[in-house]
């Protein structure tokens, strides 16, 4: 392969692999927020997912079981947030942050005995016909393809199916949906659960695929970035994917160009790029009235508007 080809395939490969957890948790947060529930506990859910995936795989030797458990555990944990914010109608910011703390705490305390342990089996390399032949796509586990495919599917579902309309309407005007016979509570619970599952899976990817091991803090703030990327993406899975990959490529470059550019500046770039990108498109979006779901963060109560 030519030098340029080698270089490109390296960049693409690292971007794809690094961006998976960011992409998955962003997609999940987009769905939760589209239904009107702000979930600030993503980081804690990821940590729970990473820990439970590792622990289950450690004991069972089956990474697929670990993946499944990571999604289920984080999904169930996120129901705590759903219960508080949908049923009890509490402040979503606080209950999300509380959930995040609980997630970090529980995974940290229970995970003590698993730090520094080695997994016998991890996620294998997964090859798809055609796609895996592209430069940079050669050696990845299944998460890379699933997250990419999910971004497209979730975009389609949200904007081109009845389910998508229901979710978006619940986030915009729950009273009207309620009047039309939509079960607002159910939709919101489902979306929060789904967001939790994706956050958990992204944690599972970290502890089983990206770097097969468990240690506290390995989520490294990705959950917070997901919340920022959700806004960056204008609550659109497609732009969420673009944002996640852009972040990934800049993160990779921050090590690639260290010989040429000062490391501090490079470390800042991934965080500055969303602002720079938004400075070009935000006014346009505002003119087109693309903004946050109108009822984001507002508890719905029948009869009060």
């Amino acid at each position: 392969m030519s030098t340029i080809g080698f270089w490109i395939s390296g960049v693409v490969g690292r971007t794809l692999a690094y961006s998976v957890p960011l992409l998955l948790s962003t997609l999940g947060e987009i769905y939760a927020e589209r239904s009107g529930i702000l979930n600030l506990g993503v980081e804690g859910l990821m940590s729970l997912g990473a820990f439970s995936a590792f622990a289950v795989t450690f004991f069972s030797g089956n990474p697929w079981l670990g993946v499944a458990v990571s999604g289920v555990v984080a999904g169930c944990a996120s129901l705590v947030h759903a219960f508080f914010s949908v049923t009890l109608r509490t402040n979503q910011v606080v209950s999300g942050l509380a959930l995040g703390m609980l997630g970090m705490g529980v995974s940290g305390v229970l995970g003590r005995d698993f730090e520094g342990k080695v997994l016998a089996t991890t996620l294998p390399v997964f090859r798809l016909p055609f796609l895996s032949a592209l430069p940079g796509f050669e050696k990845h586990n299944v998460f890379v393809y699933v997250s990419l495919g999910l971004a497209v599917i979730l975009w389609f579902v949200l904007f081109h199916t009845r389910w998508g309309i229901v979710i978006r309407s619940v986030g915009e005007n729950p009273a009207a949906c309620d009047a039309m016979g939509v079960n607002v509570t159910l939709v919101r619970y489902a979306c929060v659960f789904f967001g939790g599952v994706l956050a958990g899976l992204s944690g599972g990817y970290l502890s089983l695929g990206y770097r097969p091991s468990w240690s506290y803090g390995m989520t490294a703030g990705v959950g917070w970035l997901a919340i920022a990327l959700t806004i960056f993406a204008f609550w659109n899975p497609f732009w969420g994917m673009v944002g996640a990959y852009l972040f990934g490529i800049l993160y990779h470059f921050s090590f690639r160009f260290q010989a040429q550019v000062s490391p501090e500046l490079l470390n800042t770039l991934p965080y500055l790029f969303p602002l720079v990108a938004l400075s070009f498109v935000s006014r346009l979006a505002a003119r087109r009235k693309v903004g946050p779901p109108a009822s984001l963060g507002v508890p719905y109560q029948r009869g009060s508007s």
Partner: peptide, 28 residues
């Protein structure tokens, strides 16, 4: 004790506080 115990404590305190706040206004 592991320092992460603190996060669990704080999380619990927060959840109980906001739940109580709701109990002030709503009867569940």
């Amino acid at each position: 004790i592991p320092f992460q115990v603190m996060y669990i404590l704080n999380g619990l305190v927060l959840l109980f506080l906001i739940a109580s706040e709701q109990l002030l206004y709503y009867r569940v």
